[in-house]
């Protein structure tokens, strides 16, 4: 890839590594796939034909894996899924060995999810093809942030100047980290809301405004992004109970009324209905963008797969 390429990166490992114009370039690239994905028949483009895409998921996932699989197949790639049980690939050289093995299969693009922060980068350093981070520990989940930005941009036209509230388990959330970086990079004003036990140290260094009180954070909000609260964190270690969390941080119609009248509701899924979000809000046909996030996620991932393989495919200007 030349220095003049609009996306001079071999891998997509983090939002932190991207400049604002590179993020916008990826979002622009995704636009073309939205219509194709909505076509009644033949949702197909053959540009990745003959390329092998391996989805190596070391951590369980349903929707992200499905989204990447559909994205690859619609572009014509041969998609293979590798479900690596957590227990079998926990230790030592195994992870590096797995990377070497994947590389020896001559994959053309590898999509990786792993439960440890930094693990995807470790593998990316050992393989010859582009690597897409589909979530590493609590570090980053870049395609989720990109699809969230695409959803907001599709609904609002721009992110510039919007007030986006991210609420929930910020401490353990890679979605929150990637979104804080992506949204602030695109000019949004980001507020993060969490109980003190789920707020990471040094959060103010992300150029976001931290809140413990959800109600005050919601004032003038254009977007309310709820995060999933993991079941294992509800048991009294980080918060006393799911119902107390709901009382303080659950998104209810009454709370949503504190935001702007047309505020969007988002959630990366899967939702804990009745904990962080009530069905009345999640299913609101006007305000909720949750299913649209899933829809645009495929387009966003198609764009990432396309852009990252251009060099290998010999696309003029990308070789």
């Amino acid at each position: 890839m030349t220095a003049t390429s609009p996306f001079p990166h071999r891998h997509l490992l983090s939002i932190a590594a991207l400049a604002p114009w590179e993020i916008r370039f990826l979002l622009d690239e995704a636009e073309q796939w939205i219509a194709l994905n909505r076509a009644a028949t033949r949702k197909h483009d053959g540009r990745l034909a003959g390329l092998t895409q391996i989805n190596a998921f070391f951590e369980n996932s349903t929707r992200t894996l499905l989204s990447f699989e559909i994205a690859g197949k619609r572009l014509g790639a041969d998609v293979v899924n590798m479900h690596a049980a957590q227990s079998s690939v926990k230790k030592g050289e195994t992870l590096i060995d797995t990377a070497v093995t994947l590389n020896a299969m001559h994959a053309d693009v590898i999509v990786i999810r792993h439960q440890s922060s930094g693990a995807v980068r470790l593998i990316a350093d050992k393989v010859d093809c582009p690597v897409l981070n589909a979530g590493d520990g609590r570090h980053e989940h870049p395609t989720q942030a990109l699809l969230d930005a695409l959803t907001i941009r599709t609904r609002r036209g721009t992110l510039e100047g919007l007030v986006v509230v991210i609420c929930g388990d910020i401490l353990h959330s890679r979605v929150a980290r990637s979104n804080m970086l992506c949204l602030t990079s695109l000019g949004a004003q980001v507020r993060v809301v969490a109980p003190p036990t789920l707020m990471p140290a040094g959060i103010e260094r992300f150029s976001v405004e931290p809140f413990h009180d959800f109600n005050s954070a919601l004032k003038d909000a254009d977007v309310v992004m709820m995060l999933r609260l993991q079941n294992e964190r509800m048991d009294g270690v980080f918060i006393p109970s799911a119902r107390e969390f709901h009382m303080l941080y659950g998104l209810t119609p009454e709370r949503l009324a504190l935001a702007k009248p047309d505020a969007l509701v988002m959630h990366p899924g899967p939702m804990n209905r009745g904990v962080e979000i009530l069905s009345g809000v999640a299913d609101d046909p006007v305000r909720s963008a949750i299913t649209q996030q899933v829809e645009l996620g495929v387009a966003m991932r198609m764009a990432c797969l396309d852009v990252l393989t251009r060099g290998a495919r010999g696309v003029p200007g990308w070789a």
Partner: peptide, 13 residues
């Protein structure tokens, strides 16, 4: 150690 670096990297601190 708690701080910006640990939070950016998503490391337990």
């Amino acid at each position: 150690t708690d701080g910006e670096t640990a939070t950016r990297l998503g490391l337990a601190s």
